[in-house]
Amino acid sequence: MTLDALSEDVTQADEELGGEIAVDLDRETRNELAMLVTALGPESTDELLRRAVHMLFQSTVETGTLDFHLRSGYDVTYDEYLSGMTFDEMTGTNQFPQQGDPDDRRYQF
């Protein structure tokens, strides 16, 4: 897969999510959410869920977990996704590919 495939998949997932998501909560999650609502007193439960997604996202970025999964599935990193170009494109590696043995040129006159 490629950077373009990742961008298309992210756009498609964003469209599929829409504005609202209905989530079934198990008992443990519901109890934990109730504790957070009680302790933190947000304006709405939605605010806590938004914060939870932000924290999970930040954690996966900081630990390298996101890059691991992106590299495994799309052969790109999150930084490459943000910049819109792969590392090879940034450094120009793809611009001048070496054909065959790079040492053959020294024997040409």
Score class of each variant (00 low, 15 high):
Tyr74Ser: 08
Pro42Phe: 08
Ser44Cys: 02
Ala34Phe: 03
Thr65Pro: 02
Asp14Lys: 15
Leu56Pro: 00
Leu70Gly: 11
Ser7Tyr: 02
Glu28Ala: 04
Asp46Val: 03
Gln58Thr: 15
Thr38Arg: 09
Gly18Asn: 07
Thr29Ser: 09
Arg27Leu: 15
Leu70Thr: 14
Pro42Gln: 05
Asp4Thr: 08
Arg71Trp: 07
Leu33Glu: 08
Gly73Ala: 12
Thr11Ile: 11
Leu49Trp: 01
Glu20Gly: 00
Leu66Tyr: 07
Ala52Lys: 05
Leu3Ile: 11
Asp4Val: 13
Thr38Lys: 10
Leu66Gly: 06
Leu3Arg: 03
Ala39Arg: 02
Asp24Ser: 14
Arg50Val: 08
Asp9His: 07
Gln58Asp: 15
Gln12Val: 12
Ser72Gly: 02
Thr60Cys: 03
Ser7Val: 10
Ala52Gly: 13
Ser72Lys: 14
Val23Phe: 10
Gln58Tyr: 11
Glu43Pro: 01
Arg50Gly: 04
Gly64Asn: 08
Met35Phe: 14
Tyr74Ile: 09
Pro42Val: 08
Arg51Val: 00
Met55Asp: 12
His69Ala: 05
Asp14Ala: 08
Glu8Cys: 12
Ser44Asp: 00
Gly41Tyr: 00
Ala52Trp: 07
Gly73Asn: 13
Leu25Trp: 09
Ala52His: 06
Leu3Met: 05
Ala34Arg: 14
Ser59Gly: 09
Leu3Trp: 05
Leu36Gly: 03
Ser44Leu: 04
Thr38Asn: 07
Glu62Arg: 14
Ser72Tyr: 09
Met55Ser: 15
Tyr74Phe: 11
Thr29Ala: 06
Thr45Asp: 01
Thr60Ala: 04
Asp9Leu: 12
Leu33Gly: 02
Leu49Gly: 01
Ala39Tyr: 00
Asp46Thr: 10
Leu33Phe: 08
Gly41Leu: 04
Asn31Ala: 08
